[in-house]
């Protein structure tokens, strides 16, 4: 999963989701190149990109130079304060928090990126189709969205997770047995991906549809349609680029949001399997000790905030770089 973590691959996948490169007009190819050029000129965005890439790299190579294993317990040093031996201190089992933070980065970044890719893909595609087509297609999609959306997330996630955990990790493997190895390697995260993917695309879908509803009535879109442009062209040339800004804002919120959702799941015991750490699990373990040992929650909380900040600046940079309104000016 490691290559998915890199910020580099994160920077560009959005347009490709609904618009494969081969079928793009030459005008829009220039548009993307321009956008990339503008992004490179944005220092904050590039700093964020570097930070995220560095983080991803750390997460990948961390085990090589870590002084402790993330699961090595020292029962004589429970909740130790930061020191030369343990730079960030230790947790409730005397495990080195720095090691757990770095291994946790793997889990959390993977959760954030993979889940968000699923969410954005489904949400954008359906939102575009619903908003553009209108009529019964719109009604159908929005009814499904309404139904799923009206579903309390937690109920769906708990049920899906209980089911998947039994299927993937139980003593008698069910029909998902082929994925059991993968699930084990992911620390039991497959269920988290599926549960998040199933529940979180709705917001993006509604957002995109709302945007398209407003856009499709605009003069230039109506003009394009009057001139006989096909739906595919209208979506690609007018609707998608104009919708990208909000989608990107949603996505930049979405990645850490998935990380946070995993934290909430950990809080009720539905996150990763022990002894695998994730930032979410570390935060929910830290909150139990916040009064007596505030240092335990500090590191994962700061890590989540910094990562989120980076995604935000990157998202803003992308937004500015891709904004067609800016380009026209």
């Amino acid at each position: 999963m490691s290559e998915r973590i890199s910020g580099e691959s994160r920077a560009r996948p959005q347009p490709q989701i609904v618009s494969p490169p081969g079928r793009r007009s030459s005008v829009s190819r220039g548009f993307w190149t321009d956008a990339w050029r503008r992004l490179v000129r944005n220092p904050l965005a590039m700093a964020s990109l570097s930070f995220l890439s560095f983080l991803a790299l750390l997460a990948v190579v961390a085990p090589v130079f870590l002084p402790y294993s993330h699961e090595k317990q020292d029962l004589l040093a429970l909740y130790a304060s930061p020191s030369a031996a343990h730079w960030l201190g230790t947790d409730h089992l005397g495990r080195d928090l720095l090691s757990r933070l770095l291994i946790g980065a793997r889990i959390s970044l993977t959760v954030g990126l993979v889940a968000e890719c699923i969410i954005i893909s489904i949400g954008t595609a359906l939102g575009l189709v619903a908003g553009y087509s209108g009529g019964w297609v719109d009604s159908l999609i929005m009814r499904v969205v309404d139904a799923l959306y009206a579903f309390p997330d937690l109920l769906l996630i708990i049920i899906v997770m209980s089911y998947l955990k039994a299927q993937l990790g139980g003593s008698t493997l069910g029909w998902l047995a082929p994925f059991a190895g993968m699930n084990k390697a992911l620390g039991g995260l497959l269920g988290v991906f599926i549960a998040l993917g199933l529940t979180s695309w709705l917001t993006t879908c509604r957002l995109v549809r709302g945007q398209v509803l407003s856009l499709r009535e605009r003069e230039y879109v109506e003009a394009a349609r009057a001139l006989g442009a096909g739906s595919g062209h209208v979506i690609r040339a007018h609707l998608l680029p104009n919708t990208l800004g909000p989608i990107l804002v949603a996505a930049t919120l979405g990645v850490p949001n998935a990380i946070l959702l995993e934290a909430s799941l950990s809080f009720i015991g539905l996150g990763v399997d022990p002894p695998m750490p994730s930032w979410g699990l570390m935060i929910s373990e830290g909150v139990q000790a916040v009064q007596s040992y505030p240092h335990v929650i500090l590191a994962p909380a700061i890590a989540v905030s910094l990562t989120l900040l980076a995604f935000n600046f990157l998202g803003d940079g992308l937004r500015d770089a891709l904004d067609p309104l800016l380009k026209r000016a």
Partner: peptide, 10 residues
């Protein structure tokens, strides 16, 4: 040991 933590009712 591989650890399997289950939701209480499960």
């Amino acid at each position: 040991a591989q650890i399997e933590i289950m939701e209480p009712k499960a």
